[in-house]
Simulated assay, not measured.
Amino acid sequence: MRALTVTDTPTTEGTVRGLALTERPTPRPAAGEVTIDVEAAGIGLIDALWASGAMPQHEGFVPGLEVAGTVREVGAGVVGLHVGQPVAALLPGAGGFAEVATAVAALVTPVPDGMATAQAAVVPINTVTAHLALTTVARLAAGESVLVHAGVGGLGSQFGQVARALGAARVDAVVGTPEKLLVARDLGYDHAHLRAEPATVPDGAYDVVVDPVGGDATARAFQALRGGGRLVRVGNASRAGDVGLSSLAHWLENKTTAGFNVGAWLGDHPEQGAESLRWSLGAVAGGTVRVDLTGTGELADHAAMLADLLSGATTGKLAFLVGRE
């Protein structure tokens, strides 16, 4: 089978890390697993970071955390899934940028009738991350207010919409460009702030602030919390260094900071992953939550597509259309 693998390529200026299309053995499922003939694979920022070497991975590593396609083979002990069944899957260990992917059966869910395969492939990671983070560590309650940094990106757009679906009364965004202010309005945010104008974000105004950016955004996010508020750190898109937050301020101002790493969470709570994936697919299929598939390409188009992600030029989600030749 073909797969996109992390590869070191010698050049006249030294070794360059990137992705390359390679031939690899077709995997077989172990007990509790299924293999999937991948028809589409969602692309996330972390995939671009792996591909560029900004987040190191070993040579031969195959990125891709979410796929949709049909069940190819079923491992021992798997129930409720069968060969040929259209499914979507979370892949916490990656491996989705390939013609065949291996998935833990507990993190595989049938695709709702009528949902396009490419659409199903871009739901698992971001929508599930938003749903699990907001219902677990953020403890979002109906009627609360939420601020989402990078609110129109692939991940941020899901936090905004899932928060609304869970009953948030006010949902605001911070975005990077004036053009994205219009996108935020289209996504249903009550108000959007420019990242370059942090003074417009009110202090002490939000019950939950979601931070996938890091760096200065983290410090501003903490200031935006009201008493009893929760800052949820879900990424480091800025690739900034660690940010220190005062433990005394946490105490005196009655604020909480939590982290949420979906891969680690699913490793400990796989049953929650399956439940959340079903909720997420149903919400998108039913129109409660919108996932904009803004670009597709073949595996061979990886360089340009991942470069767009790294530059911050994208909104919504990108996907590889895979299939077998």
Rank of each mutant, 00 (worst) to 15 (best):
V183T: 11
A169M: 11
G153Y: 02
S311I: 07
Q223S: 09
L309T: 05
A54Y: 11
A118L: 06
W279Y: 14
E271V: 09
L49V: 09
H149M: 06
D207S: 08
Y206D: 08
G153L: 02
V284G: 02
V34K: 00
A105C: 11
G96I: 05
V16C: 06
G60M: 10
T35H: 00
T177Q: 14
W279H: 08
A68G: 07
A106F: 01
A307I: 14
V201W: 08
A3W: 02
V6G: 02
P56R: 08
T129N: 01
I36S: 04
A94H: 10
T117N: 13
G156L: 04
L266T: 00
T70V: 15
G267P: 00
A98W: 00
G64Y: 00
Q223H: 09
T200E: 15
H58Y: 13
D242S: 15
R230Y: 05
V262L: 13
R17D: 06
L155E: 02
L266S: 00
T127N: 01
R324Y: 10
V104R: 00
A237K: 07
A40S: 08
A313W: 12
A307P: 02
V148R: 05
A68C: 09
E99V: 07
Q85T: 09
T296A: 03
T102D: 05
H302V: 08
V123F: 03
S238L: 13
F320T: 12
V201P: 01
A76C: 04
A163Q: 05
G160H: 06
T257W: 06
G287P: 11
T200D: 14
A94V: 07
E73A: 06
V71W: 01
A105T: 11
R28C: 11
G80H: 12
A3S: 14
P110Q: 05
R17G: 03
A106K: 02
Y206G: 07
A184D: 07
F222L: 13
N236E: 09
L306T: 04
G80P: 06
E271P: 04
T102N: 02
L182I: 10
T218D: 05
P110L: 12
M1T: 13
M115Y: 10
L107R: 00
G143C: 03
V71F: 01
G323N: 14
V171H: 12
D308I: 07
P202W: 11
A163D: 13
E66A: 03
E271C: 14
V175I: 14
H269K: 05
V201Q: 07
L231N: 12
D37I: 04
G96C: 08
A54I: 08
V83H: 13
G80A: 12
D308V: 10
R72H: 11
V78L: 02
L277Q: 07
L277H: 02
V108D: 02
A103C: 04
G32T: 01
H58A: 15
P25Y: 12
F320I: 13
G69N: 07
D172K: 04
R2G: 05
L65D: 03
T70K: 04
W265Y: 15
V174N: 09
K180L: 12
V34A: 00
G42H: 01
M1Q: 04
M55H: 14
S280V: 01
V123T: 12
T15L: 12
P10C: 05
V262R: 00
T135C: 03
F320L: 13
V174Y: 05
W251K: 13
